[in-house]
């Protein structure tokens, strides 16, 4: 059973490493569109899949953030990946199933998954 005491224990464990993940220069950003269009198309499970995959693989230099409508609602859910020094990569029509491959191939091995990108869809 999850309890507030358990949260206290998390605090003690985290206190030493709080600054690890925040605003690192070499940080990778995953940005998920979360406006009405994104949410209706299934962005919430996609966002949560990214968060759990990144936590599972313990990738401390990756942050998952949210943004509003990117302006291409018919291609939602849309996810943008920003790697330092690289152009952003835009993934469209995202599903939970695509997340593990993007994390492994793009975020860890630095090779974008071309078939899921906006270039392949258009």
């Amino acid at each position: 059973m999850k309890s507030l005491a358990e949260l206290q224990a998390i605090r003690e464990k985290m206190l030493n490493q709080v600054n690890l993940r925040k605003d690192r220069e070499d940080g990778i950003r995953v940005v998920v569109g979360m406006a009405t269009c994104g949410i209706a198309a299934g962005a919430r499970p996609v966002l949560n899949a990214f968060m759990s995959e990144i936590e599972k693989k313990n990738l401390a230099n990756v942050t998952v953030t949210q943004t509003g409508c990117i302006g291409m609602c018919r291609l939602e859910p849309i996810v943008e990946v920003y790697m330092p020094g690289e152009e952003k990569v835009t993934y469209v029509k995202m599903t939970e199933d695509k997340v593990a491959r993007i994390v492994t191939e793009h975020i860890i091995n630095q090779k974008p998954v071309n078939e899921f990108t906006i270039g392949a869809a258009e």
Partner: peptide, 19 residues
Amino acid sequence: ILGDVPLDMPEVLSWITGY
């Protein structure tokens, strides 16, 4: 309870979901 530990740390968010 968390004090200086931010709410959006992955471990804290997992706890919130489970709770």
